[in-house]
Design a protein around this nucleic acid. Structure first.
Length: 275
DNA sequence: TTGATTGTTACCGG
DNA sequence: TCCGGTAACAATCA
């Protein structure tokens, strides 16, 4: 369900509530019984996020690796926690808080090497201060895949999801069909800078899920998104079209999708102030 | 009840 | 090899 900023937000919130605490870990459905027993009574040292992945640090190099996928959710309860819902896979409790994890794509106990392996397969995460955009650029410039697909590739841009891909391409006026190898360097730089800005604001702004809450230009229009699940450009009224690519919906201005030979479209920016 | 989804992986064919 | 498409997994909502 979430994009990177939401996952980082979860990590920050859960770290604040649970780090340094001894935890009670249970498996209401019985689907995580052995793992829960290994964690029970241990001290949760830290919660950290890499892209859309979460790692819960336990003593002796033991990690709980969680990826929410499409349907995963967290429920954070204060002290008298309600009985776990049917879909709760793991319940982690301290004196003050109870965290339920529901329907994750990944939920497993791993060691240091496995954690490093997961992180090594991820591209730079714009939300991590040490992220190196050159690593993403090297992959983008060598690929003939469309930039719309590259943006969703976690091995290139860790943490970007379907919404921010569409919104970034729209606001930077880049044709989603453009192959990575034809993307000019300055366009890549604008994509990266925009991702950093939006994702960081997304982490700071609380339970942020829309670009409208993060981008001042869009906020003025009262819209949630520029193009995602929309039908017309908020400034010009130009038609927005959508199509399926790589199994996911892509949203873009119709003029951009109908350009024929893919190229960056130097469209005049109307009514849109960038920074 | 059906279908779609802010996701990922494996597998197949061109 | 690279690239694009499909199915599978799964919980929830309209």
């Amino acid at each position: 369900m979430p994009e990177g900023h939401t996952v980082h937000r979860y990590a920050r919130q859960q770290h604040a509530h649970f780090a340094g605490q001894r935890v009670r870990v249970t498996s209401p459905q019985g689907r995580f019984e052995a793992e829960a027993a290994r964690l029970h009574g241990k001290t949760l040292r830290a919660v950290e996020a890499w892209g859309k992945h979460l790692f819960y640090a336990f003593p002796k190099g033991l990690w709980l690796h969680v990826h929410l996928g499409m349907a995963g959710k967290f429920d954070l309860h204060t002290h008298p926690a309600p009985p776990p819902r049917e879909s709760v896979r793991v319940r982690i409790a301290t004196k003050g808080y109870t965290l339920d994890l529901r329907g994750p794509n990944t939920c497993r106990l791993i060691g240091d090497e496995d954690r490093v392996a997961v992180i090594d397969r991820l591209g730079p995460d714009p939300l991590r201060p040490d992220a190196d955009p050159e690593q993403a650029w090297e992959k983008v410039r060598k690929s003939r895949r469309k930039i719309a697909l590259l943006l969703m590739d976690q091995a290139i841009f860790a943490g970007v999801g379907n919404i921010y891909r569409a919104e970034v391409l729209f606001v930077e006026r880049i044709n989603p069909h453009l192959p990575g190898c034809d993307l000019p360097r300055d366009a890549f730089d604008r994509i990266w800078a925009r991702l950093v800005t939006w994702l960081r604001l997304g982490v700071e702004s609380g339970r942020i899920i829309t670009v409208g809450e993060v981008d001042p230009a869009l906020a003025k229009t009262g819209r949630r998104f520029f193009v995602y699940k929309e039908t017309a450009c908020p400034y010009t009224g130009a038609a927005i079209t959508s199509w399926k690519e790589g199994g996911r919906m892509v949203y873009a201005l119709a003029v951009e999708s109908a350009l024929g030979p893919a190229r960056v479209k130097p469209m005049p920016v109307v009514g849109l102030e960038t920074d």
